[in-house]
Design a binder for these strands. Structure first.
Lengths: 322, 322
DNA sequence: CTGAAAGCGCTAACAG
DNA sequence: CTGTTAGCGCTTTCAG
């Protein structure tokens, strides 16, 4: 490995001078600059960022915490974050937390010791207060975790309202909501929006809880259909959950949208692959990821921590299941 | 931030002693050890890994290069890598390369400057020779990139053979293959397996190239069906491609598996969400990711670079499309 | 304009 | 058993 010393020697200047031209800071005669640049070229020198980190206490890395990249909602988010990070010269460290605080904490400690510059957090809201003490630039993505932390999220409640209204307009009078995991903020907001509309319109309804996994959604739906054979609409808290519901519907011999209408939430590519294609509430996934990364980098570089909430609008995409 | 110096002062010993008990290396009296441990506890000290990196020239990080996490084949692979990395105390840096050598190179340089310990590479095979010069522990995942580099991959050719034979046994006599991108090794191997069986059995066939995107697969299939209306079987190079084909089939009013039978490749969760559910050649995705990470870490820690190929068997999963 | 030197936090000889 | 010290590679005062 060639170091700054080698370059200095080759260019016949001091390391200080090399450092100066390297960072374009301070003075350096044209002559010295030329020689240094030449040496760098000749020796194929690349500055060592670990040494830089040690001095500056920054690393050019950001942590990306998500529950599970295997959940089809997250890859696009991750991709967006990575794209803007790369563009700004950051590198992203990838952390699957499985919604476990222990894992989160463990990663956080590890990253902090590496001088990671900031973290994008898609976390469970439970430990909200803790994050404030993390003392590191953070932006919350998809889930709100406290008003003191900048947040990027969708207008989940309104999306749920739109979905429920849509089902009602399509003639559904007994609507089931497959709710997401308890304690996960978006799931709660969607459920709240659902309840609101149900109440406003005086419809019959039933809510069951799922965990966003397709298998469990299928199982729960089977049970639901057994208990309430006259359900004619299902609002699923995610597209994957909706897919599970559709399988149960098919198994129980019901037609979609004939017997039961189904609407999902998220707007992942899966919607278009299903037959019939899935009506859903579309989130601006990529844009949210971008925004979160931009906010974080801005916070890192300019220390702006205006703890704002960026709520992205959501749009109803009507397809065949309704 | 509390440093080793603070701990030393608090414990009334030298930094050397602190370092010794920290790393459990060299001698330290019980008394000294106790005092240091106590100080660490009291001061909530956490060693700074950047400083350690600078000395040891290692970072406890591994790079994960994949074309695009948004392709549903990759999240599970990424997850597996991350799981074993975490378990072994490594942290993974996440790099989407879009199959672009420029991006690969750029990431590689950035990571090298950070003393990244090794790289798991799902790369295009074009630049095979270059990687050897990267001078860093590497393992290739999913794609073979040279015999000097340890590799983890599926038995693509054999899988393709099984798929094609299966189609033939189901009575198909004119089979189309939706081939993956040119120059991507697994795509080529699958095409080769396909051709072999076609030849052996003397079947009619046609091959068209796609890029693993669903939209394009749909378009290509439409064209294909127009040119060859009597196709009765489709072997798609990936499950996503198969999904695209199924959409085209539906659009053109053909029934699956009645008019045309379809088989995919990969075994991603999507298969079970489609209606009819997709017959496919199942890869051991998670296991491959695990294996790759294990090999890499072993190579990093024990310098074993037996450039072996680990080829995972593949299994035919028969579902409704055939 | 330039170089010597201190130091970022930690490790590892090397003398005690 | 323990402390002193010299780096790891880079940046930044601070005297020239």
């Amino acid at each position: 490995m060639t170091t700054i010393k080698d370059v200095a020697k080759y260019a016949e200047v001091s390391v200080a001078t090399v450092s100066r031209v390297l960072n374009d800071r301070g003075y350096a005669s044209a002559e010295a600059r030329r020689r240094v640049l030449d040496a760098i070229e000749k020796l194929n020198y690349q500055p060592n960022s670990v040494a830089r980190s040690l001095y500056h206490k920054t690393s050019g890395m950001i942590g990306l915490f998500m529950p599970d990249i295997t959940n089809p909602f997250f890859p696009e988010l991750a991709r967006a974050v990575e794209d803007v990070a790369l563009e700004s010269g950051y590198t992203v460290v990838f952390c699957n937390t499985d919604e476990e605080e222990a894992k989160e904490k463990r990663y956080f400690d590890a990253l902090k010791q590496k001088y990671v510059d900031g973290i994008i957090l898609t976390a469970s809201s439970q430990s909200a207060s803790d994050y404030a003490q993390w003392d590191m630039p953070i932006v919350a993505l998809d889930r709100v975790i406290g008003k003191h932390i900048p947040t990027v999220a969708s207008d989940n409640k309104n999306g749920a309202r739109q979905a429920t209204i849509h089902l009602a307009e399509r003639g559904c009078s007994f609507i089931a909501h497959l709710k997401g995991p308890a304690g996960v903020r978006p799931a709660d907001d969607r459920a709240a929006g659902f309840e609101e509309v149900i109440e406003e319109k005086g419809l019959r309804s039933v809510v069951v809880q799922t965990n966003f996994s397709i298998k469990q959604a299928e199982k729960e739906t089977m049970k639901l259909l057994a208990d309430h054979p006259d359900i004619d609409g299902i609002f699923a808290a995610s597209d994957v959950t909706a897919a599970g519901a559709m399988q149960a519907l098919a198994q129980s011999g019901r037609s979609v949208p004939g017997d039961v209408k189904v609407i999902g939430f998220d707007g992942i590519p899966l919607c278009n692959m299903l037959v019939p294609s899935l009506t859903t509430v579309q989130q601006s996934i990529y844009q949210m990821g971008e925004k979160a990364a931009q906010l974080l980098i801005q916070q890192i570089e300019h220390g702006e921590s205006e703890s704002c909430e960026h709520i992205f609008p959501v749009s109803l995409i009507i397809r065949e299941t309704t």
